[in-house]
Design a protein around this nucleic acid. Sequence first.
DNA 1: CTAAAAATGATGTACGTTGATCATATATAG
DNA 2: CTATATATGATCAACGTACATCATTTTTAG
Lengths: 342, 342
Amino acid sequence: MKNKSNIRDVAAAAGVSVATVDRVLNKRPGVRAQTVAKVEAVLKQLSYRPDVYAARLSKNHSLRLVFVVPRGHNSFMDLLVEALHETAENLAYERCFIDIRFVDAFDGQAVAATLNSLTPEDGDGVAVVAPDAPLVAEAINGCIARGLRLVTLVSDLPSSSRQHFVGIDNVAAGRVAGRLLGRFCAGQCGSVALIAGSMTLRDHVERHLGCKQVLQAGFPNLKVLPVEEGQDLAEPTASAARELLNKHPDLIGIYNIGAGNRGLVKALREYPGRQIITIAHELTAISRQALVDGTFDAIICQDPAHEVRSAVRLLRSLCEGGEIVRSQERIRIEIFLHDNLP
Amino acid sequence: MKNKSNIRDVAAAAGVSVATVDRVLNKRPGVRAQTVAKVEAVLKQLSYRPDVYAARLSKNHSLRLVFVVPRGHNSFMDLLVEALHETAENLAYERCFIDIRFVDAFDGQAVAATLNSLTPEDGDGVAVVAPDAPLVAEAINGCIARGLRLVTLVSDLPSSSRQHFVGIDNVAAGRVAGRLLGRFCAGQCGSVALIAGSMTLRDHVERHLGCKQVLQAGFPNLKVLPVEEGQDLAEPTASAARELLNKHPDLIGIYNIGAGNRGLVKALREYPGRQIITIAHELTAISRQALVDGTFDAIICQDPAHEVRSAVRLLRSLCEGGEIVRSQERIRIEIFLHDNLP
DNA sequence: CTAAAAATGATGTACGTTGATCATATATAG
DNA sequence: CTATATATGATCAACGTACATCATTTTTAG
């Protein structure tokens, strides 16, 4: 815990000039391998690391990040954008500027087009919320080929060469939903229904998978109905829920994999006699209210503000070569019950 | 999102010298109120904020923080100390040095003595894990009177003048435990037992309170037995569990409020015929294994690494006058099931 | 052994703020 | 109207790194 050593100390200890240490540190050419080794030994011995503040000041380089996010898609995305604005405001005083590019809806074509238009002129790093389509993966690879650093946000494209994924493990989230659904239905027999936004969305497929796994393996008393699709919209989700309630008098549980909570709540309220264990995703005004009044039994969340901060930290590290503290970047699967709402 | 303005821009815009702007910024005396107002108007208009990096570099001031934590208390504290070491290592390169002061066990006297010995010579800020005793609260107030910034960690002393509490809402945590216990026992009747470490510890009292509230209000099928005390140690906790299992054939649930999970697991394994829904706190090697093999049904956690980082950020803001991003400092009540272990 | 090439040293400027000092301008008291 | 406060301007040296330039030394090729 002693005082930090600076570049001068290193030079003195290695018996070379400051200029040479600088050359080694910044991998500039013109230093004999032997000298490099000597300097690096001293660097390690003194556990030298450049002073972050001096370095940033000296480089006087602003980090420019581009966030590509769907506009007006759903309440969760609204929260994400809100967090983005808030973070951007704070970051402006740390030499980091965020440019938000909205793409209309969750449209692979549009996202790909936007990504393809990005060059190092536009920014140093990119975070993108995109569906897992080949077109998009290709566009991501293009960005990286052009020298941009890129992370996927909320929804992953593991087939692309994105440098990180910032978001939750959706299979695990699905398993949690299945477990809660199963246990909350303890002692009962009946059907449970899963409503996805669309089974073309990777995160929905993964949640569905996880949930079904757990239910089938651990809860033989429950019959898992074929998955419905609510297009992440209120009305289609409401229709799907109504149909399920009508068609299956033994329905005792619903897991809403995607968005459209507004519709689900509306439909459930039309059947006050039915006691349906309901689990949904993301904490918004609607879902929060539903949890408070007992319409929902649990909400599974990811914290959009944390995701934004994590994406920024990761991109900064990728661009400026800093350390990554893994544990800090783990996006938690948060579980909210009636009792621990923030 | 334009380029940052610097102190020179402000001076030019306000029609004063850089020195005067500096006087205003750092609240130095010798500036007419009228001039102050003029400069401040420009500051706001240009939304100027001093460059963090230049400021830190110039001040060339290292932040020294003291963490007062119990040694060898339990696995959770071990995790906390581990996180502390890791964080300290990273922070050393950001001009922040952490000094860990161990106090023997969870002893108010010892903590108070350590706190009383701290002066601005020892550090700029203090984070302390301490029981909620008047002696400790007094020592905390003393630290603050001496000009130190102080936050409580994990366990709060709201009666003291500590500047922040870094930890979870323990009443809410207890409510979550109660809710899960209640719902996981759905369809059954019987007794549930709560085992605290000691009902003199504030966090244990709060968890007990929250849990009992929820169980009594929402689950009339369950009878809440009088709270037992396991002293946060394996053996006493095991004894308490054994006695409960022997004395109450209708026991169907246990909530271990404090530590001593090792003992609880041991006792439960001695009664393989009994199906006891069990909820405990903190993710350690023992509790993790118990969750995996089904001995435990849920674990409620706080992330010690997050708590350490949060404490550091808060103390840094308090000492250096930075911004506090509230949402980033919210310590989550994490819930782990068999399905979402990290 | 010499010439060219490569490695290293010495030195300086820039980054934006802090926190001084000293000089000068303006306001206020007597 | 002077004498004295008070305000303000001008200037400078840190802080530690990055990066550039030019001089000098050492190494290598021929």
